[in-house]
Design a binder for these strands. Sequence first.
DNA 1: CTTAGCACTCTACTGCCACGAGTGCTAAGC
DNA 2: GCTTAGCACTCGTGGCAGTAGAGTGCTAAG
Lengths: 340, 340
Amino acid sequence: MVQLEGRRREILRLVIDDYIMTAEPVGSEAVRERHRLAVSPATVRNEMAALEELGFLHQPHPSAGRVPTDQGYRVYVDSMLQEEQVPAAERMRIRRTLVAGEPDRAIEQAARALAGITECASVAAVPRPHQQVVRHLHLVPITDRRALAVIMADTDVFEAKAVEFDVPMTADDYERLSQEISRRVAGRPLSELTDPVLDRVIGEATLHQRVLDQIGRMLREHILRSQARVHTEGTANILKQPEFRDIRRAQPVLSALEREDVVADLLFEDSGAQRVRITIGMENRHEEMKGCSVVAATYHVGGRCAGVVGVIGPTRLRYGRVISLVRFLADSLEDVLGRF
Amino acid sequence: MVQLEGRRREILRLVIDDYIMTAEPVGSEAVRERHRLAVSPATVRNEMAALEELGFLHQPHPSAGRVPTDQGYRVYVDSMLQEEQVPAAERMRIRRTLVAGEPDRAIEQAARALAGITECASVAAVPRPHQQVVRHLHLVPITDRRALAVIMADTDVFEAKAVEFDVPMTADDYERLSQEISRRVAGRPLSELTDPVLDRVIGEATLHQRVLDQIGRMLREHILRSQARVHTEGTANILKQPEFRDIRRAQPVLSALEREDVVADLLFEDSGAQRVRITIGMENRHEEMKGCSVVAATYHVGGRCAGVVGVIGPTRLRYGRVISLVRFLADSLEDVLGRF
DNA sequence: CTTAGCACTCTACTGCCACGAGTGCTAAGC
DNA sequence: GCTTAGCACTCGTGGCAGTAGAGTGCTAAG
């Protein structure tokens, strides 16, 4: 990475600031005027040409101003960003909506708040890590032929689902069956419960084949889906962004955002040790997302990663604002969920 | 409703057929050519002028062809529709994907199939009727301070959610508490559990105030959300439709489709006795949806309405195809879900 | 009642031109 | 050696006129 020195660096920052606000290519005159630089436009031009040479700016056509490249945004975010604090009033408002409802809803509310404020798409996801260990399976009687099968992990419920029986069951039957299955799957991490293992484990139990099949399927489904539960909000917002005025640009992005696996991929990329992870344009793995940036923050409850919240928008994001907003929401969620 | 006689009626049908396929205003010549009518364009013009007078067609500007009005689509759908059978191969393929997974996923799969085939948005919703009666509340122990609270209706689980306790609990404690709460809420329909009632019911129980609060909140949340659980798919598809090439038309529609309450409203409008309900353009209650049509079918399991599937697209829908497709999916879901 | 003929209207497309924005380059100035 | 004024150059944009084409409604004849 080339080190940028004083004035050149400053000009890059000004150009990006300007472009983020206006969505229009930025000319030399505009930079000087709006920021009262003590140099002439010609000098600015020279610097801008140099910045283009270095790959930080780009000129859409010869008589246009400059536009930041992904690489330009990258140094901007990495080394010249000033976070905009979230106004206290807004903090209050958000905090209140989060605390109001069920914890499950809090995650949704967080996503909604993000989408509303940023005018971008927002995402909240709850990971279901493969390492989690199945602790117990419990059958809760509903009728004598129907029960709720609850799979539990260390301290969390994986899933609860109704299962059907061929023969009438007594409370005792349910109890025994629960324990039989629990004994066989308990202590195994989810990732270990692959199909062959599962078949063997389940197959050994002689009782009530059909139920066992169903429970086996339920576990299997779970392993499949276990990467994450994703909640997306405000995808229609990206149509408000000028870079997506053209339907042909917007359509693939919206389609991609509809796919849970894609969104999960964007969010759960290796975040290193950082709290907030920022992925800019081409850095995104998915072709359709190479015109977008992702700002995502993880939050932790009880020492383990409890989820991710994030914002997805055009690369021309108001990074300073979005980053502190996302961080604030991650903090708040940590707080709210930590109480339970 | 004006009765349309032979040729005039035929011409309306042809114009609409044509427009549905091409998305372009249809001229007199085009109608005659493409359908080998034995009359001259001038005659067709006269008829078309009459149809416009009657409110079935509309002319965007003086030198353009005709476009159907909502009213035009209405008579088309009501009285001149020929359903296109879903090809056997497609039926097979869909059926297979539905049966493959968990019943819960079947609903999702149905929506996905609809969206994929029709290139429109699709929706699947499961109503949670207010009339359902709470039967039992069961606390499944997780740890000594944490349990899963399961609310059960006649034969279905409303919801399962983890709750936290202030003090350590034994299995016996859980058992007793379950029964205490169950006794108080059992037999009441959901709709009756309004806030004051709930407060009294819950308030009377002396034990473990915090848990009771949580359970109360959970029930309340449920009543709020109980209108429906909605699953929308393929909303980005509507950007592929030429009528939504203009972002300013598309944006409000997409935003509306993101709102669960709006979608639920569209789907659960009074369907009368019909299996498949069709709402065209202005007939929709929501302002943003007045350029769209909805084709929705209910399916029943065990004698009661178990859900709705539907397609949402431009008023220029291929009704014949969409209707039989939606009906087929409703049938299939009935079938698949009926087995459980 | 049907239809040929015709005048009319409106959109869409094209080419043209002038304008403005913004640049890069060169040469002069500090 | 960096800065800057001046200038020529390049393009995108918007307005304008003109043309082609589509499709109509009307009238009068069959």
